[in-house]
């Protein structure tokens, strides 16, 4: 290209076709995925339906984490704590006051949101390593805290709850009903985050992720947006935690150790930071890979898991979503 064209003096460059149009294929992919998701529970045995349900639960948690890490460029090593807070909010409200389960969802969302807001305020002042340490500390202190307030949380024994039963009109089995509840929450969450990211707010988050100084000059209030990113992110983790409680029917402190937080973050990075498919692929990773690692080597599953993560990152530095995107773009297109 000549410099004259470059400056746009008069020779207007020919209108070029966009190199690839994501929307058409994207819509088709989402539709196909949704159809498969609606069909799957009628074809699978209950245990596999349960596994898929858990994938949906983790996908919502990773969706929240992705908003914070992938889109706003902040870090959290303690997102398992928000997940746990959502799970316990649902459990405690069901166990004590006997709140009907649909109402535990907004309750968990609000509690996690407020906690995220509370953590977002100091998080705004911290960067990188310091933020990582504070969020990690939150995850570490949560377990003893849950054990300590035995009267409410059931201590180390945890709380056992009835699972939401399928209404008679649905004709569904319990595992199928739970699956559809999780699917509904996941679809709504992905739609919500999708529209958030396409809005002015989403642009502000991307701007502060890419260049804080430049974002500020554009008029983005960094403290406000970072805090909000934290709160929204926590909210989705809390929502996922709530659905977890519905599905498992049991909460105990040992389900929410630091390990969970680290696995969530690892899952997201492997799945693909900042991409739409990342949380879903990451959820598959969180659900299946740790147990595969356990099967491969009873003694040191952590080592196997670590090696697997390194292998994936070596092959696909932008995560599995990036790898999938590259492969899809290689498929020739009909003109």
């Amino acid at each position: 290209m000549t410099q004259v064209e470059d400056a746009g003096v008069d020779a207007r460059p020919e209108r070029r076709r966009p190199r690839w149009t994501p929307t058409g294929r994207r819509r088709a992919a989402v539709a196909a995925l949704l159809a498969a998701a609606l069909y799957a529970p009628f074809q699978l045995v209950p245990f596999h339906v349960f596994q898929l349900t858990m994938v949906l639960v983790y996908a919502v948690a990773l969706l929240g984490l992705n908003l914070l890490v992938g889109h706003a460029g902040q870090i959290s090593l303690g997102h398992g704590a928000f997940f746990a807070v959502g799970a316990y909010t649902a459990a405690v409200l069901t166990h004590g006051p006997g709140l009907p389960y649909p109402l535990t969802l907004p309750a968990a969302a609000v509690v996690a949101f407020l906690l995220g807001l509370a953590f977002g305020v100091p998080a705004v002042r911290l960067r990188g390593l310091y933020l990582a340490l504070v969020t990690l500390a939150m995850a570490i202190f949560l377990v003893p805290l849950l054990k300590r307030f035995e009267g409410v949380t059931g201590g180390s024994m945890g709380l056992t709850l009835p699972k939401p039963g399928p209404p008679a009109w649905s004709g569904l089995a319990e595992d199928q009903w739970l699956y559809f509840l999780a699917l509904a929450v996941a679809v709504a969450s992905f739609a919500l985050v999708g529209s958030l990211l396409r809005s002015r707010v989403g642009r502000a988050l991307h701007a502060l992720r890419d260049d804080e100084g430049a974002a500020e000059v554009m008029g983005v209030r960094l403290p406000a947006y970072k805090t909000l990113a934290f709160a929204w992110s926590a909210m989705f983790a809390g929502v996922a935690g709530c659905v977890y409680t519905w599905v498992i029917g049991f909460v105990s402190p040992d389900s929410f150790t630091v390990n969970l937080s680290i696995t969530l973050l690892a899952g997201l990075v492997v799945g693909g930071l900042g991409s739409t498919a990342g949380p879903v692929l990451g959820a598959l990773f969180v659900m299946f890979v740790p147990s595969i690692a356990q099967d491969l080597n009873e003694a040191a599953p952590g080592v196997i898991l670590g090696l697997l993560i390194i292998a994936v990152m070596y092959v696909a530095p932008t995560g599995l979503a990036g790898l999938a995107g590259r492969l899809i773009r290689k498929i020739p297109r009909k003109e």
Binding site: R203, A204, H206, A207, D210, D211, A215
Partner: peptide, 12 residues
């Protein structure tokens, strides 16, 4: 903002 599109940059 290099990873963002031209339009997103302008809207920012």
């Amino acid at each position: 903002f290099m990873p963002l599109t031209v339009e997103e940059n302008l809207r920012l």
